[in-house]
Each structure stands twice: as structure tokens, then as C-alpha cells.
């Protein structure tokens, strides 16, 4: 099925409706009742708010069926095919950056992320890309760790920073 805006509208609305039902089930693990003696149960607010979400998505689905909303009449591709590369590569590289941050630490993954991103999307020289990819994590380190004393995740690369911490403190 071609992912047109019309298809995306119903696809997303159904996903959101399912999410709303999931939230209601999850909220119902706590008490969803409200009595004067016990006041509101912990699940009361999330349950009824999720029900409200469900009603809103049902209305959106209904509007799609009767072709009332602008999106339900739009048969253009949901994401411009020529721009697919930019969107998907960016999302995948961000997933890579965060995965890398959790395992090898933010500073090392930043070097790879910046190098990969700039190599793919910029027309700069290799020298510029290399210098920029290494300088940015250094500036980030100085700002957060040295100036603000906020430690960013270092993963398995943490021992590499011990000598720098000894110099700093």
C-alpha cells in the first residue's frame, strides 16, 4: 500500500487509538474509581484522560471515513520521496548516536556521528570534517564537565577520562 497522506492519517489515527486503549488498560492497574472516602484512585486521571484521547481519535477516524478532514482527501505521498534519504538517515544516525552514547560514551559517539553526518550531507573537505568532529566533543566536554560539573554518559570509555579528571580536580 502506497503511503499517501490519506493512508497515513488513518494509519496514525488507528495507532493512536490503540495507544489510548493501551494507556487505559495500563492505568486500570491502579484504582480508577473516585469515592468521597478514598478520593481519587491513582489511575483515575490517566484512565479518563486516555478515554478522552480514544474518543478524539474515533472522531478523527470518522472524519477520515466521511472524507471531512483535509488529510483524508490528500493522496500526495506522506513523505516527499526525494527527501526520504534525509529523514531516514537522520533518524537512523540519531538512533546510532544514542545507542553509542549508552555504550561507548557520548564523546566518542559524537565523533562518529558528526563525521558520518557531515560526510553524507555536507560538501566540506575531509580535513574540515575531521577537525570539526573532534573539536565539537572537546568543546562539549569542557562546557559540561569542566564549567558546569555535569557528567555526560561515558560508557565503557570512562577510564579514558580519569587522567583528565585528575588534572581538572
Amino acid at each position: 500500500m502506497k503511503l499517501t497522506t490519506r493512508n497515513a492519517e488513518i494509519f496514525v489515527a488507528v495507532i493512536l487509538a490503540l495507544c489510548s486503549i493501551g494507556l487505559m488498560i495500563k492505568a486500570a492497574q491502579n484504582s480508577i474509581t473516585w469515592t468521597i472516602e478514598d478520593n481519587m484512585g491513582a489511575g483515575f486521571m490517566p484512565f479518563w484522560l486516555s478515554l478522552g484521547m480514544l474518543i478524539c481519535t474515533i472522531i478523527t477516524i470518522f472524519k477520515w471515513v466521511i472524507r471531512k478532514s483535509p488529510q483524508s482527501n490528500n493522496n500526495e505521498p506522506f513523505i516527499d520521496p526525494e527527501a526520504n534519504k534525509y529523514v531516514y538517515v537522520t533518524i537512523l544516525s540519531l538512533i546510532g548516536l544514542i545507542l553509542g552514547t549508552a555504550y561507548v560514551g557520548i564523546y566518542i559517539s559524537l565523533i562518529f556521528f558528526l563525521f558520518f553526518y557531515l560526510k553524507n550531507f555536507s560538501e566540506k573537505s575531509n580535513l574540515f570534517i575531521s577537525v570539526f568532529s573532534i573539536a565539537t566533543p572537546i568543546v562539549t566536554f569542557c562546557f559540561f564537565e569542566w564549567l558546569l560539573k555535569i557528567t555526560l554518559p561515558q560508557g565503557i570509555s570512562e577510564p579514558l577520562f580519569y587522567p583528565i579528571y585528575e588534572l581538572m580536580y
Binding site: 537522520t90 548516536l97 556521528f113 558528526l114 557531515l118 555536507s122 560538501e123 565539537t136
Partner: peptide, 11 residues
């Protein structure tokens, strides 16, 4: 240039 600004914003 946006190609440089974009990754900086992501960082």
C-alpha cells in the same frame, strides 16, 4: 551552513 548547523543542533 545548514549541513553543519543541523548536526550541531542534534548534539
Amino acid at each position: 551552513p545548514f549541513a553543519i548547523l543541523a548536526p550541531v543542533i542534534f548534539v
